[in-house]
Design a protein around this nucleic acid. Structure first.
Lengths: 296, 296
DNA sequence: CCAAAACAGAAATAAAACTTGCAGTGATTG
DNA sequence: CAATCACTGCAAGTTTTATTTCTGTTTTGG
């Protein structure tokens, strides 16, 4: 007889000590929990090919009074811990983690996005939107794998007629770039894992010059975030897998939409202006010099 | 008496004809369906402040034999139609679509990723991975808002020592770029919505020169996909909202992981080489000339 | 304002879901 | 090889859940 608490994990723990039929039940609960939470004991017995009595005894063995108590526990687990993303992973787990199965990758991304729901502090998010809207100019720093993030946000903000400038260069050139940045501007920096020399320089100089910094990162160690005015925490999955830029990209997108709603009519006007300009020049030879990308 | 089929929508339809107490039940089912699917009739009666008899009559009014049948129907609805993303949206719908609420944006992204589970054809995905691994060189085309995607994939593929070259220029320069591209190469193009002049040119020339094209798009109209050898369909949400690059980014990431697994040891070696190079030069003055970005 | 109809809840009844005792089975051990 | 033990399903009980009936109440239409 074992003390109960979280039936699901408890089952995994005691699994080896279970009898043949009881293992059937345990397997069922572990693998098909999302179906089982809706079953009555009769349905479950038929589903698993086990007698109802065995199920009751199984529940009691786990320290419950009876089956309904076990089920309640499973429902609780199902609702609290089996997040939608986890459920999805489970649902495609018949082909587990096949790198040639898009679904398996997408499910992981969904899980990361879910984590970000908890991780991203909404006050910081609101502050970030506000800072972008207020800034005189916006300088975006992202190197290597983060260049795409800086690029993306720069492009979108520019479309709102905000003065967004992408600065992907690192090293000594950094200081030259810095000469033009002022207090009223905003620096947006994308930097993950741990601080590099360049990143430290960037943060120190911006602190010195009192330029506000919005930092997107997945690391909250002090050297990373010390000088940042606003920090957006973007979880990117556990080590061991290739880090994905999906969550930071989602945050970018949320920022863009947030900024758009803050700007309101201004944003609409800016987009309209762009659209008009395109119309005007579309058939001229000039056409190929301006971007034609034509989503909104 | 009404014919049954999908209780949930049926309830919404007949809502106005319901009595006061029955509306209570309907409200409960519509708003708190995800809790109610786990309730017995007794629990539900207490929860709603309605007698059990009324619930049974409600179920029968809807054309069911009794309460268990209605519940079964709701469970079915809950499991089939309330996708995880939809559930999440529902769960944060107390603050509906607040543009200053990160959760509200993230929930939408999750929904899009879910759609992509259906939309992305896995055969195409596998072909795409194969094509990338086989290609002599890879030329990536993405303009405007898609530049970030091309940039991202270029960076990652380069890290595997694949010869990935980003080509963001449009217009006449395009032809110059083309002189160096050959049959054994691969073109990866990101283009959404509808074909532009530049895009048509790109596709026509590549068809002429028989260079295989991997196209990522959200539009399947013939002019878009005619000449593409492999098409990856990346849904980006309904019109009216700003299109997000989260799904294409997720596909990028899936491709990267797919390629990594195909390359196997080769990929590991390439990454190791990079890491060694960093170690060697990290403390020298040379350091700032190479990328320090240090996630995997 | 009153009668007829519709409605809702309490209680009784029916139907399940659940538990337990018992006997049969097969494995283990002395 | 027989005795023991753990395990299981059957079937008979017990409890919980679901339905129906009955009765008082509210609503509706004249």
């Amino acid at each position: 007889m074992i003390t109960k608490s979280d039936s699901y994990h408890q089952i995994i723990e005691v699994y080896d000590d279970l009898s043949r039929q009881q293992k059937k039940i345990a397997d069922g609960i572990i693998n098909r929990c999302d179906e089982i939470v809706f079953f009555s004991i009769t349905q479950l017995a038929n589903f698993l090919g086990v007698s109802e009595a065995t199920i009751v005894r199984f529940a009691q063995h786990l320290g419950h009074k009876g089956f309904p108590e076990l089920k309640e526990d499973l429902v609780k687990y199902y609702r609290e811990y089996l997040t939608p993303g986890a459920r999805m992973r489970r649902s495609i787990e018949e082909f587990p983690d096949d790198p040639l199965l898009y679904k398996s990758h997408a499910a992981r991304e969904i899980q990361l996005l879910e984590e970000s729901l908890q991780a991203v502090d909404n006050d910081s998010f609101v502050q970030a939107v506000e800072a972008i809207v207020q800034a005189e100019r916006i300088f975006l720093f992202g190197n290597g794998g983060n260049e795409c993030l800086a690029n993306h946000l720069t492009f979108r903000l520019s479309r709102f007629k905000l003065k967004a400038i992408q600065q992907s260069v690192s090293g000594k050139n950094l200081f030259e770039k810095f000469l033009q940045i002022e207090k009223s501007d905003l620096i947006i920096a994308y930097h993950f894992y741990k601080p590099t020399i360049d990143f430290r320089r960037l943060m120190e100089v911006s602190a010195e010059r009192e330029v506000p910094v919005l930092l997107m990162t997945d690391s909250l160690v002090p050297p990373m975030i010390r000088h940042a005015k606003i920090v957006l925490f973007a979880p990117r999955g556990s080590a061991g897998t290739f880090h994905s830029q999906v969550v930071p990209m989602a945050i970018n997108n949320a920022l863009i939409n947030g900024v758009a709603s803050k700007l309101g009519n201004k944003a609409v006007k800016a987009l309209q202006e762009l659209s008009d300009m395109r119309q005007k020049h579309y058939f001229s030879d000039f056409s190929s010099l301006i971007s034609h990308e034509n989503d909104q």
